[in-house]
Amino acid sequence: MELAAAGVSKAFVTKGGGHLVALAGIDLEVRSGTFVSLLGPSGCGKSTLLRILGGLEQASTGTVAGTGATGATGGRRAFVFQDYSLFPWLNVLDNVAFGLRMDGVGRQERTDRARAWLARVGLAGFESAYPEQLSGGMRQRLSLARAFVTEPDVLFMDEPMGAVDPQTRLLLQEDLIRIWEETRKTVLLVTHSIEEAILLGDRVVVMTARPGRVKLDLPVELDRPRTLATSATPAFSELRSLLWDALRDEVERSMDLS
């Protein structure tokens, strides 16, 4: 088991002195080498759960265990953020090599590995550009390269395609499917796109409106390699309507909440 959460809850104290329960008793296990999509209405705490699993935040109660968790067996984690969070003062090459540099990898090796990944995500030739000079889609490719180059045990992706236009999003999804099928990393992906969750995931976990709980845990048994054409198959449509049925009530409830 790569990653296991047991009874994870998270509460915040709000500015007005009140409190907010974001997560209420989450149990989740993720097997090595699987791609798990986390789906839920806005504000259901799915990003918070991802951050807790990734060790960026502490759970209020409950435990997280596994090689991907902080402090555990020293497993390597990597993150892809929705807003890219690239370092504007580093050029493309140094952004990709950042994690390796922090790990103490020597200059020659980290440059070679970073270049290889830049080529793999289609950014060869942009090594000395700065992130601000790139388009949204290119920045997210850069962000993917920065994560994959560290050869993580677990990859955490927080709505990695939420900030790009729909056409670019389709291209990025294809890239991500291809890269994942080549590397078979353990991935946790937070998304609010049902199609994206199915297309990329081996499993789709649906969360309830706040406070977030696991509502449905659905295996996706579509053949790999997958392409965008996979989304036109009857099996895909069936999964999509199953997930939408589970999600619909939660989206309505979350609209009432906010």
Partner: peptide, 27 residues
């Protein structure tokens, strides 16, 4: 804060975070 978090997520803590994230960003 997102850049600080990205720095930490990629292994920059303490002095490394200061040297490689906070300082260049504050310049």
């Amino acid at each position: 804060p997102r850049l600080l978090e990205a720095g930490r997520a990629y292994g920059a803590n303490g002095r490394k975070l200061f040297r490689h994230v906070l300082l260049p960003g504050a310049l």
